[in-house]
Amino acid sequence: MYTKSIHYDVIDVNLAMRKMTKDECLDDLKHRILSTDLAPGSDLDETALAEHYGISRTPMREVLHRLAGAGYISSTENRGSKVASMDIGTMRTFFQTAPMIYANIASLAAEARTGPQLEDLKAAQRAFTNATAANDAQAAALANHHFHAVIGQMAHNPYLVASLGRLLIDHTRLSQRFYRPASEEEERRIEKAGEQHDAMISAIEAYEAPLALDLSLQHWDLSRDRMERYVRPDPLPVDVVSLKDHRNAV
């Protein structure tokens, strides 16, 4: 469904001026994948990437291994590396799993959060608010990614956090659509998303785990159908269970 090809002919001036560190390369590739500059399913040429970032193939290979371990790409010995797919099977699993992961994460965050983490969450929300006010869809999607990642850190549960990290990759790519409103009603949804973020912060700050769980499900409901449009014109062949029905399953 994605046919976008990748070209490395035009290299950013700043990248061409100096050799990047492995961490800088890793962060830039994550950003390009989350923003869909590197399209889902696209082939990644190790040699071309190493040249692009001004590093040798050995550290480039390490970067790709780290990306694969985090779920950003898939790598096979004989077929090389590809940006993580967003095919029908992947999306089916995403829409079935996401609400349960988000709900449990929010509940645990409200029970285990620390003061510094709460300040990090409020800072993430300020960045989100600024991005949506500027109508910057990419910045809004990335700020939303960080907001939910901070909630994941608050949960202090390595099993759920690992799942959350993978979910957020696809959520952020899908939400590029959500943050490009085509009507007043869609603009209102973005405003509502910000209001729900504020409510989630308040619930977590007050150690109100049931409320945080409920708000996370409302938040998911708000954007779910808009994210599904990302994979159209062909609708997803899956009956997404009402989130209300998930409440007793989390």
Rank of each mutant, 00 (worst) to 15 (best):
Y8H: 10
D9F: 08
I11G: 01
D12T: 10
V13K: 12
N14H: 09
L15Y: 05
L15D: 03
M20V: 05
T21V: 02
D23K: 09
L29V: 15
H31Q: 14
R32M: 15
L34S: 04
P40N: 12
S42V: 00
D43S: 11
E46M: 13
E46K: 04
A48F: 01
E51T: 08
H52E: 08
Y53P: 01
S56P: 03
P59L: 06
M60K: 00
M60F: 01
R61I: 02
R66W: 03
L67F: 01
A70V: 02
G71T: 07
S74N: 13
S75L: 07
R79P: 03
T90P: 04
T93H: 15
A98N: 06
A106D: 04
A109E: 02
A110G: 15
G115C: 13
G115Q: 15
D120S: 13
K122S: 10
R126Y: 10
A127Q: 15
T132E: 04
N135L: 11
D136K: 08
A137E: 02
Q138D: 11
A139E: 07
A140Y: 05
A141Q: 12
A149S: 12
A155S: 10
A155D: 02
A155Q: 05
P158V: 09
Y159M: 05
L160T: 02
S163Y: 11
L168V: 03
L168Y: 06
P181F: 09
S183A: 09
S183N: 11
E184P: 05
E184G: 15
E184K: 13
E186S: 06
R188L: 11
R189A: 07
I190S: 05
H197R: 14
D198M: 12
D198I: 12
A199F: 01
E205T: 09
P210V: 02
L211Q: 15
A212G: 09
L213T: 08
D214T: 15
S216P: 08
Q218L: 13
R224A: 09
R226K: 11
R229K: 15
V231P: 04
R232L: 14
D234W: 12
V238C: 09
V238A: 13
V238N: 09
S242I: 09
D245L: 14
N248T: 15
V250N: 09
